[in-house]
Design a protein around this nucleic acid. Sequence first.
DNA 1: TTGCGACCTTGATCCAGATCAAGGCATAGA
DNA 2: TCTATGCCTTGATCTGGATCAAGGTCGCAA
Lengths: 248, 248
Amino acid sequence: MQINKMPIPELTSVRCQECPIRHRAVCAKCDEEELELLSGMKTYRSFKAGDVILWRGEPLQFVASLVTGAATLSKTLEDGRTQMVGLLLPSDFIGRPGRQEIEFDVTATTDVTLCCFDRKPFEKLVEDTPHVAQRLMELALDELDAAREWMLLLGRKTAREKIATFIEMLARRATVQDQEAGGQFILYLTRDQIANYLGLTLETVSRHFSALKKEGMIGFSDRHHIEVLDLPGLQLATGDDADGGLVS
Amino acid sequence: MQINKMPIPELTSVRCQECPIRHRAVCAKCDEEELELLSGMKTYRSFKAGDVILWRGEPLQFVASLVTGAATLSKTLEDGRTQMVGLLLPSDFIGRPGRQEIEFDVTATTDVTLCCFDRKPFEKLVEDTPHVAQRLMELALDELDAAREWMLLLGRKTAREKIATFIEMLARRATVQDQEAGGQFILYLTRDQIANYLGLTLETVSRHFSALKKEGMIGFSDRHHIEVLDLPGLQLATGDDADGGLVS
DNA sequence: TTGCGACCTTGATCCAGATCAAGGCATAGA
DNA sequence: TCTATGCCTTGATCTGGATCAAGGTCGCAA
């Protein structure tokens, strides 16, 4: 079990207007005035890769937006089996108004910067500013959709389909997020973490990565930089309905 | 695939004050005045067991609270594999404000009565009355918690643990809801539907029901009336953390 | 430069749950 | 009463992914 190293407090003064997640985070719909309010109550915190950001059941001191890096939500059974129940990337929200605690652990998988708000004043703000409440609701419903999509994956997809879905999802989020050169993007997770996300073992993940590589669907420059070489093929391998998504 | 029999429109005049789900549904926090508003826009609709209430992707005409009966949310892969992603019991909410469509099918598994609100006026109401918006947010977050709990089940639990968890959950919800005689309660779902809920096959479900029965943990009077005979044993068999729940 | 630790790959074997198959048991309709 | 139909149970067999095992690779720190 991971030791909870103390977070390194670090005050950075980024103006909200220049914030990289300004238009996707909980503050997305805020006008200048509301932004001013939020700006006044925010603090930045950094966590090192591997740090536990929040423990399950621990009283929640703050809520936050993830600004840079990646974090995971995970649940654990009595005997140690774990299942990741969410992957947080920049602009995702941590915590929930009206709840004292959360039902899972939140762990930084890379170095992470959070934009934090103390829970109490934030909750007050939610009550007062409809734009924040609405955006929060949208984010919650998006997460619910994502969770249900993942239930289908966990319950019914084969290992190969799970891996293909995972890569396709990362590719989709990566292109929206940081547009790295040439379709290549960073695999934030280790094989073991990917296995936890997909309800598999790390050996099975490794084997299917190798298989997809051999088939020319994906390529690796090193173990954490993956490239999609055959997107249509990959999408076919996900097992999803071809007409499942929106026209984009 | 199930044929969509036309719903039977049926106007029942139940006063909100006497509604069986008054204190748990979306209207739970409403005061008399707000209730009056809701009351003015509601209509009841009935569906027969097996009817599809809503199709995935179909434009959403109404949102609703489930008053009596049970319904399922389910997603389907291209080749027909299906996974249930939610089970709706009385007081649960169907639909979402701000979305035109939903990502899964909603099917009545028993005869069902819904308390329906046309989507547009309901959305207007959500914007105006904080009590409804708050309750809606709570319901969404509860569903999110439930979805994540289910992800753990689907990804990491054994068949036996899945069955035990399912029965334990039903027992918990049943005792709150309708307090049938002697710890016995109705199994709303067929073996096949249970299998879809748990990410198993119907044969595996049947085998483990038989095993738990042989071990004296549960009993059946007929195939749809189940009784928990050894709750501690059953809880042990779920694989969950003993200290997982709240003190109740 | 060497040794260690963290992570990844690949092979061999095992087994829980899927699949295939054959009835059993209610209820409903003729 | 007979027969069809829709579940459900149980047995036999198969198999995808888990488990067990043995290196391989890379980066870092002594």
